[in-house]
Design a binder for these strands. Structure first.
Length: 480
RNA sequence: CGGGGCGUGGCGCAGUUCGGUAGCGCACCUGCUUUGGGAGCAGGGGGUCGCCGGUUCAAAUCCGGCCGCCCCGACCA
């Protein structure tokens, strides 16, 4: 069907790379694992940022910026933190033509340097809670990079907050997880499963880690955002303390939470199809593309007059609209061009349409002939916002159905071993395993416990691995 | 780091077995004709064949060394 894009059924990894190339989202950089985010891809990220940033502000957070370089000794203070990050650090040992007294770590995350500053800024319970966020780049020297999903350098936001007590910090942790869940669902049209990470999967240095897990087109899971309750782990080693109302020194309780450019990868894989990208209107850099069709100059003048009028009004209504009036390209070429790029709605306007008083419209999210319908010229401007909303909700609905149809259960490990290969997806199972059981599970099946969903069902059952009676269900899947 | 594959115009590849001085498709540029699902014709530009060394009258091709990239695994937002 689509030229230059591998069928996802045939080779999903290749399809993913093809879509990124053909939609001009990103290109690989000269340094291994690094990626150039091209304007179209960056524009999706900007829309993600705008939406989340507004939510962060609404929940009382302020943006700040902390430095890229962190003294190596900072990273080493929190034992689990070092252990977790040491293998993937990029470290500067020389600068300004001299060997540095103390090596500088290029931040893999900013808990340590932020705690260093928090310890200076926080003195009293009146300074709490401290609610900060930063939009930044971080570097993690990963062994196996993949565009957007795991690049050596990536863009993200990291929220860092300090609270007087555990209760307040835990509420914040779940509040931000909830912000992510809402964003994924209502903006990215991805029905994620919010849950808690197991001991084995949690963030290095956290007491508890929470995650939103999304299902990709091949049935694999993608951790699409995290929120951590850090307890007093960092506060203790950085002496981030405050004086409470009884004049006693207390450690702050902290949280950190983040989402990254990985979300762009999530959008590609949650919605993309054999013709390329499909973007939910709320994230689409171009929501409506208008393709004028004209045989000769006089027809072109007539068509363009109408096209310009429609696009002007739509723009005023806040719709992101683009007119593709490039010459020397056939309409068919342009249709494909914008379909690969996932533009949610296309309008085709030619002499024939003007004569009949309507325009041809095509919804990217619907397959084949079902995608086309006409809109009368009189009602076009009024109806577009509603159509975009319809596309947004249809895409969410389709994603929910896809996820549900690929969510299974199993009773024992033997059945699972076979099922995860023949029917990749989410496995919603009873679980009472240990960290060792998880390791064995991964070794034998390549699948991991993605999360313990916040929403648990009533009753008990036998753990599919150990056979012990339990009231806990988890989601197990193969993951990126 | 282990296993597999690959380095030849921007992209995808052929040519390497058996040495003879680089070709195809797409993309790009110009002109004309086209335009309702990836247009046609004609002309044109662009490559130190990953790098270093060796063999030879002659190396993309043979020999030695090095480097890089991709895919699969361990690690991860």
């Amino acid at each position: 069907m689509a030229k230059n894009i591998t069928n996802p059924e045939k080779d999903y990894a290749k399809w993913y790379q093809d879509v990124i190339r053909e939609a001009e989202l990103a290109d690989s950089a000269p340094v291994r694992g690094c990626m150039v985010i091209r304007p179209y891809g960056y524009s999706i990220w900007e829309n993600i940022q705008a939406s989340l940033d507004a939510s962060f502000k609404k929940t009382g957070h302020k943006n700040a910026y902390f430095p890229l370089f962190i003294p190596e000794s900072f990273i080493k203070r929190e034992a689990e933190h070092v252990e977790g990050f040491a293998p993937e650090l990029a470290i500067v040992t020389q600068a300004g033509g001299k060997k540095l007294e103390e090596p500088l770590v290029v931040r893999p995350t900013s808990e340590t340097i932020i705690n260093h500053m928090f310890s200076k800024w926080i003195n009293s319970y009146r300074d709490l809670p401290m609610l900060l966020n930063q939009w930044a780049n971080v570097v993690r020297w990963e062994m196996r990079p993949r565009a957007f999903l795991r690049t050596t350098e990536f863009l993200w936001q990291e929220g860092h907050t300090a609270h007087a007590d555990e209760k307040d910090a835990r509420e914040e942790t779940l509040r931000m997880l909830n912000v992510y869940t809402d964003f994924a669902r209502n903006v990215a049209a991805i029905p994620v499963i919010p849950g808690r990470k197991t001991e084995r999967e949690k963030f290095a240095g956290a007491v508890d880690s929470y995650t939103i897990e999304a299902m990709m087109g091949n049935g694999w899971a993608l951790q699409s955002g995290t929120s951590h309750y850090l307890g007093t782990n960092f506060a203790r080693v950085f002496e981030t303390m405050y004086l409470d109302s009884n004049n006693e020194q207390q450690f702050v309780h902290q949280t950190s939470w983040g989402v990254s450019t990985r979300l762009v990868g999530a959008v590609i894989m949650a919605h993309g199809d054999e013709n390329g990208l499909r973007l939910p209107p709320k994230l689409a850099p171009v929501q409506v593309v208008i393709v004028p069709i004209a045989r000769d100059d006089s027809a072109r003048a007539e068509v363009m007059a109408v096209v310009e009028r429609i696009s002007d009004v739509l723009e005023k209504e806040g719709v992101r609209v683009e007119v593709d009036n490039r010459e020397g390209m056939s309409p068919g070429f342009k249709f494909n061009y914008w379909e690969v790029r996932g533009v949610p709605l296309r309008l085709e306007i030619g002499p024939r349409d003007l004569k009949e008083g309507h325009v041809m419209a095509s919804q990217r999210n619907r397959p084949g002939r079902d995608s086309k319908f006409t809109i009368s010229l009189d009602s076009i401007v009024d109806s577009i916002p509603g159509i975009l909303e319809r596309i947004q909700s249809e895409m969410l609905e389709e994603a929910i159905q896809k996820r549900n149809s690929r969510t299974y259960t199993v009773e024992n490990l033997d059945d699972f071993r076979e099922a995860i290969v023949s029917k990749p997806g989410f496995y919603d199972v009873w679980w009472d395993g240990s960290t060792e059981d998880e390791t064995r599970l991964q070794q034998e099946t390549k699948a991991t416990v993605r999360c313990i969903p916040l929403e648990q069902r009533e009753g008990t059952g036998k753990c599919f691995m150990t056979g012990r009676e339990t009231n806990t269900r988890v989601i197990i899947a193969r993951a990126y």
